[in-house]
Write a protein that binds this DNA or RNA. Structure first.
Lengths: 247, 247
DNA sequence: GTTCTTAAGTTCTCTATAGAACCAGAGATG
DNA sequence: CATCTCTGGTTCTATAGAGAACTTAAGAAC
């Protein structure tokens, strides 16, 4: 946000709070304000743009609803980090033998550089046959497999990821993407469906071929919505239970 | 809402708008304001409870977020009807042969009065072996089966439903519940999972036994959250695709 | 009869202000 | 050293009011 331009951009017929919300959204999507960072206070915004505090507050409320900002009384307003505990994966009942819910460990079975399949390249917004880093990854709880994952990364931005031995990668990949490659995941799209287990999936998950599995495709996005990672995960259908409310 | 009591109930330490929101929520849940009916205007609420218009507005905004009310500029504020187009069923791709999305027709294959299975009685909040109306229903598009449904109703409140010939029931059941039995559905809980098709499901859906199917259990609720209908629907997994966004 | 005008009622936008509630840190006190 | 107090900054709650934007219906004008 330029410091000496107190004019709000956008169509003047739009309400002020809308135009301010658009302005703030631009700052976040452009990555000028990063997740975890502090956003300007209500009073600062009101003075800077010469509007009433209530109007600035209303704009902020919009972005809070959208999940872009979060507010803490007494502390300030901050750019929200994505909440992957809101992922569809939370509807898998992953319990260890004692019945506790646990974060599955991640074991990378295979990693190589290869041309991407068309559907992956398309999802990542790359040309056909673009080079990618392919991984096969198994997630386990108490030694028992719960998810079989197939992951693709664009080879260019993630070249440094290849330098890290697969054995040193912990249960979470996104922090590694950030520290090793400077690639920050800020949002994702997920799609769920079910299918019958193929022979490979059945072997990895130790179930019968043809048994139903839940498939979740995820496209993780970086700043500004640029696709960063494509991932397909499969888990036993009998461990999955999604609930929702209608009104 | 009693006309001569301008005192807001509830813990006085709570914000005014919270207490007003609670009050309005009570009116709706108790069924004193019915879906589609008009709620009091902002100015009326402000005068009646002797609070500022902005405070009344804030309370209404809460209930709008919760999906209980909806506002129309110039017209007023109304108790919202449930939106069953937000059901999980919308993620089934039900196309006819021309590729258009269409409302499936409903064909009741069987209807009888029988003791409920334990899990149904429990979901409906009734004692074990309570009597219920059981239905087997097939939903079709262009003559092709897309959903196989098993439906249970409490026998008492829905006795009049038995008087209606199954052939005269259209594609939607809830309007019939309302007109014939005075039972209004205002919300529902849905749960999704996947399983392998049993022989009966396979026959109804004309797929192979063991093929994956999506199962959606729905508990429809009336005024005040009282359970009205239990329903289990099964559809071909290859027609289902649920998407969501994380941030 | 059709169209236009007016009026009343509603939600929506915006301003301006005041104090409460809360947090973090600096400084005083014991 | 530990605890308390104060202070500045933040969001949150609430008030009061003005006008815009929109809907509906009744009445006027053609």
């Amino acid at each position: 946000m330029s410091r000496h331009d107190p004019e709000l951009a956008g169509d003047r017929r739009l309400p002020l709070y809308q135009r301010l919300a658009d302005e703030l959204r631009r700052e976040i999507n452009a990555g000028r304000w990063k997740p975890g960072e502090r956003a300007p206070s209500e009073t600062w915004l009101a003075e800077h743009f010469e509007i009433a505090p209530g109007t600035a507050r209303q704009a902020i409320a919009m972005l809070v609803d959208e999940g872009l900002l979060e507010r803490f009384r007494g502390k300030g307003t901050f750019v929200r980090r994505p909440r992957f505990d809101h992922s569809l994966f939370r509807f898998f009942r992953f319990r260890d033998r004692s019945g506790e819910n646990r974060m599955p460990e991640g074991r990378i079975l295979h990693r190589e550089v290869a041309p991407m399949p068309d559907h992956v390249a398309e999802a990542l917004g790359l040309g056909a046959d673009a080079l990618g880093i392919a991984m096969s990854r198994l997630r386990l709880i108490g030694g028992e497999p719960v998810l079989a994952e197939e992951i693709w990364l664009p080879a260019g931005p993630f070249a440094d990821f290849l330098e890290i031995p697969v054995g040193e990668v912990g249960p979470l990949l996104y922090p590694v993407y950030e520290s090793a490659c400077g690639q920050l995941v800020v949002s994702a799209d997920e799609a769920l469906r079910a299918e019958a287990a193929g022979p490979e999936t059945a072997r990895l998950l130790q179930i019968d071929a043809g048994a139903p599995v839940i498939v979740i495709d995820r496209l993780a996005r970086g700043i500004g919505g640029a696709p960063l990672e494509w991932r397909r995960s499969r888990g036993r259908a009998d461990q999955f239970h999604y609930t929702t409310e209608i009104r």
